[in-house]
Amino acid sequence: MNIIVCIKQVPGTNEVKMNMETNTIIREGVEAIVNPFDMYAVEEALRIRDNLGGRVTALSMGIPAVSVLLKDMIGLGVDDAVLMSDRAFAGADSLATSYTLSMGIKKIGGYDLIICGKQATDGDTAQVGPSLAEKLGLPHTTYVRRIEEIKEGYIRCQRLTDDGYEVIEMPLPAVITVVKEINEPRLPSIKAMMRAKKAEVTVWTADDVGADIDKCGLKGSPTQVVKTFIPVHDIESEVFEGTPEEQSKQLVEKLTNMKFKICT
């Protein structure tokens, strides 16, 4: 069972703090991390491989520095790591990213399953998984919270829905995106970390994978960001005083006088 996991470098969300006074994002010491959801994708791939054999390849499109994070993935037990890096890839929206990744995946070849995170914490789009599946002509299921069964040419998994879950079957190869609930990612082992130090990350450019640069990066992106701004929460807060009973009384008074009517 050969599996490709797509991982994205994102700014370390732990470090992203809001300065509530000036309403700006504090950027000091922003470190780059692997998108947290992609760690669940990596873990799931490793578990399947450990059960069924095969190889796990971590694939990322990003700047040269991402190779450091890819080495960490090898430290976790991933067999191969591929970085697609080229100035022509910069500024990609989810369509261009999907196209570019699909070209890398075709070059890797011989895959049974592709796993993406549910969404990346920088753009929060959650679009690359389904869009990539389409570019590869494969079936997909999003928000997978459990793989019930996986074997040669077949997967049955649970998709998390708004009020429960669905059980979905697909032939392999297929694409899934995973949510946090699916597993508990492992920590790197000392032995694997040593191996990771020496590991090689394969780097491919647009040329290497035969990508049409008109479909990559900013040029291949139908969407354009025209403006960004920091949202303002100019909220008038009212904090009540008194005993819990007195405060509750005041709050209930306010809430029952609102335009929106609470009904039991």
Binding site: V16, I25, T121, D122, Q224, T228, F229, I230
Partner: peptide, 10 residues
């Protein structure tokens, strides 16, 4: 985007 810390017009 960015968990609601940034708004973008696209």
């Amino acid at each position: 985007a960015f968990g609601g810390n940034l708004m973008a017009t696209i």
